[in-house]
Structure formats: C-alpha cells, structure tokens
Design a protein around this nucleic acid. Structure first.
Length: 453
DNA sequence: GCATGATCATGC
DNA sequence: GCATGATCATGC
C-alpha cells in the first residue's frame, strides 16, 4: 500500500486533474465518437505492441498513467479504476463482447471474511468504464470509443456481488479453489486466466494446485450498464417546475428562453457554445440544446413529443432563401402505403419548432425568432394529391415528371442525392435518381408571416 | 457509405 | 427572382 499513481508527464501537463473524478470523466469523454488515432490527431508514435492492448494504450496515451500493477485503483487519489472493454454489434444493438476481467485472485493471500477488505473491492469499488466497438480485422487504434462513464455499483447490485464474492472465497476457504467455476455466480465471476497454459497456482487449504483466476464482471451485467449508458442521450430542457412562470406552457417557456438570444449571429453562437461549424447539419439543434441548458445529445421533451426542429433562413430582403426539404422517398415503401399511414403524412403531422435566422446587410445570419407550429388539417389533406401523383409515377416507373412547386401551393418533389450519379433501385429494377419531399418556399413564407407577432 | 439537413447553381 | 436540378457537409 501507500503506492501513488505515477504519470508519464508532469501533473500540470496532464490536461485533467487526477484527484477529481469529475475532471477524469470529462477528460475521458473526449474519446467518445473517436478512435485513439483520431483523438491523438495522428497515428505516429502510437505503439500498440505493448502488453494489454487498447486498455493499456488508453491509460498511457489518454491519461498518461505509468504502467503499474498496484493493488489499488489506477487513480489512487480519486479512488477510480480505469477499465477499457470491447463492444460488438448484434442486430444493430451494442452489446458487451466479453466479460470484463478485473484483478487476479491471489488464493494464498485473499481476504476470506470481509468483502470490504477484499482485493476486488480495494481496487474496483469505483470504475471509469470506457467501451469501444470491436471490429474484426481493424487495427485496435482505430476502434471507436462509444461509452465513457463512471460506474458506482448500486446498493442492490452490490448485495448480489457480495454474495458472489462469498461464494468464491468459500471455495478457497474450504480447499476447493481448483473447483471454482464461473457458472456458480451471478454478476461477479472468477474467470480463468491463461487457461490454455498448464500454469497453476497454489491454494492455502489444499495441496491440489488451482487454475489461475481473476475476478470478472459478467457480460450480462455489462450489457445492463451499456443499455443504461446508451439510453442516457436525453436530458430535459425543464429541470424543475420552478422554471415556469405563472400560466406558462412548455412551449411558452422554450420560446421565452430563446427570446433572450434574438439578434445573436450564427458565428456568435458557434464561438459562445463551442460549436465547430455553423454548417453542421445539426447546428440549430445544437444551439437549441445549449440555449435550453441541455448537455446531452437530445432534448428530452422534443424526443418524447416528437417535436421536429427545422431551420428557416431569411434573406435580408425578407424573402425566403430556400424551400424546406424532408427525407428521401422510399420507392418500395410508398407503393405499399395508403395516404393515411404514409411516411410523409406522418412526418408532416409532427409538431415543428422553427428556428428562423435572418441575414443582415453584411450577410451575417442572426436569430430572428422561433415558434412552434403544426400543419393545419386542410393543408395536410390537400397534399394528398401530391403524394398520390408521386406514388402513381413511381408505380409507372416514371421518374421524370414528379409534381413541381408550380403545380401545388404547398409541396413538391425534387431530386436529392449525393450527386446526379447517386442512384438507387426503383421497384422496376432500374437505377434511378433519389428524390425527396419538399415544402414550397412560398408556403413557408406564408407560415412565417402568420407567426410574426 | 449512406441518410439527412441544408445550400448551391443555373436557366428561364 | 423563382423553379428546379444538383450538390455539400456532417453524423451515424
């Protein structure tokens, strides 16, 4: 004991505070969505040949920890053990690829009475879990990190883990370390290490040597952590009822929060909120999240209520820059649909939150206003003709004369692919251009004018 | 590599 | 100045 964490850099150059769990976590979170190579900005000087694979590389290159085999946690002062573990994709879902191996069990010296004094608990009571997506054949340094989070065992889990631990040490105490199996426990396992070697270890109460084993968290337990972590992409815009003014609705409150920012330019938003580019396709959504004080990826209320945020850009002469596009038409799907259950009708039936930017005389786009909106029923129903005409053309394998904006006051159909060579299969088997749904410019302008209060 | 939100380019 | 074809930029 008494060993302290050692670093490969002076503390002040680490980029985080190794005494602070919060700072360690924030630093780790920089990995999300990146690989080691993209995190470091280059793959020069990454030596993956060392022992321990990606986990050791994360310790070294991300946290600048000196390799160690201390009995205590990696971040001694913060009491946090760093664990890096692989995920795999099964039916589009991320699951644990393997059990998470913790520390070796030293049969001769393991605590046999008090869980709190056990080697497992001394090292692993609090974890920084880093999950990455394993891909066969890809170099390890290119694996993408998906989840970074602190893990404290909830009380109710800990009860089960303590029972598992007792089961394991009882085997040692009764001279049966060589009979330990992984199946006998629930969350915490004792998995074999170096199982295909002939190496064995002595045990204290029997002459029979036992296979070397380590404490491990089972895949099923990790899967629960993974599910929980991935679902945590939402955060409510309203954290407490006290945020509401009297008689205010959720939408009123959202609009009120935005009003304080009217007149702010896109570049100002970008620098204020640390957004990389004003051209990111989720730029407006990112701005909205920040205005509403949401750190997570999605605004919970918007998700729950299926509110769709759309950006509208006005030119400085008050005209609309563009019509509004929606997603591409699925040529196979549309043939199976009726208007009432069609994808497009479903999209247009949503509640919308429009964020309007207006260009000033110098060409800077500034936040002009925001408002919630739903398409009136009569408009929705009038679009049925556009949809039917589109469906009919597709059924007739005619991809050259979709409804134009001059033919209907609300909507039209227009190409949208990566470029003109970006083709897709038509039901006829032919390769055709991708088209999508649009709301006419004039129609959007009309909505805007109605909502200028 | 593709889907998606957004924008550009050109001709009338 | 609009309609329409085409393409960009980015996230997943």
């Amino acid at each position: 004991m008494g060993q302290k964490t050692e670093f490969t850099k002076p503390i002040k150059e680490l980029g985080y505070d190794p005494k602070s769990p919060d700072s360690i976590l924030k630093h780790g979170e920089l990995l999300i969505g990146k690989s080691l190579v993209s995190y470091l900005g280059s793959d020069e000087n990454i030596d993956m040949a060392r022992k321990g694979g990606l986990g050791a590389a994360v310790e070294l290159y991300v946290f600048h920890l000196k390799p160690n085999n201390r009995p205590g946690p990696d971040f001694t002062e913060a009491g946090i053990e760093l664990k890096t573990s692989p995920l795999k994709k099964v039916k589009n879902k991320l699951v644990s690829k393997e059990r998470l191996v913790m520390n070796m069990i030293d049969f001769m010296h393991e605590e046999l009475e008090d869980f709190n004094k056990s080697s497992f608990w001394k090292k692993n009571s609090r974890l920084l879990l880093i999950f990455y997506l394993y891909k066969k054949g890809q170099p390890k340094k290119k694996y993408e990190f998906k989840i970074v989070r602190l893990w404290d065992f909830p009380e109710t889990d800990l009860k089960i883990i303590k029972d598992d631990w007792k089961t394991i040490v009882k085997m040692i105490a009764s001279g049966k370390a060589h009979e330990i199996t992984e199946r006998g426990t629930t969350y915490l396992g004792a998995c074999t290490k170096a199982s295909n070697s002939t190496k064995t270890r002595p045990q204290p109460f029997a002459c029979v040597p036992a296979k070397p084993r380590a404490y491990s968290l089972k895949s099923s337990y990790l899967n629960a952590i993974i599910d929980q972590s991935l679902a945590k992409k939402v955060e409510p815009a309203v954290k407490s009822l006290s945020e509401y003014n009297q008689d205010e609705s959720f939408e009123d409150l959202v609009v009120r929060k935005f009003k304080a920012w009217y007149g702010t330019s896109q570049t100002e938003f970008a620098s204020k909120f640390n957004l990389k580019s004003t051209k990111a396709k989720n730029f407006s959504y990112s701005v909205a999240r920040r205005i509403l004080g949401v750190d997570k990826k999605f605004i919970e209320e918007f998700q729950k209520a299926d509110i769709e945020l759309k950006t509208i850009r006005l030119l400085n002469n008050g005209r609309l820059k563009e019509a509004m596009s929606f997603k591409n038409i699925d040529y196979f799907n549309i043939l199976k649909e009726t208007w009432d259950d069609s994808v497009w009708r479903e999209i247009l039936s949503k509640r919308f939150f429009f964020v309007v930017f207006k260009e000033d005389m110098d060409g800077n786009s500034k936040l002009e206003k925001v408002f919630f909106w739903s398409m009136p029923d009569k408009d929705l129903e009038s679009i049925k003709t556009v949809w039917m005409a589109t469906k009919e053309k597709i059924a007739n394998d005619d991809f050259s004369s979709f409804p134009k904006s001059s033919e209907h006051s609300i909507a039209h159909i227009r190409p949208k692919g990566r470029n003109s060579r970006d083709l897709t299969d038509a039901p006829s088997g032919r390769r055709v251009k991708k088209y999508c749904y649009w709301l006419n410019r004039e129609y959007i302008l009309k909505i805007l004018n109605k909502n200028i209060v």
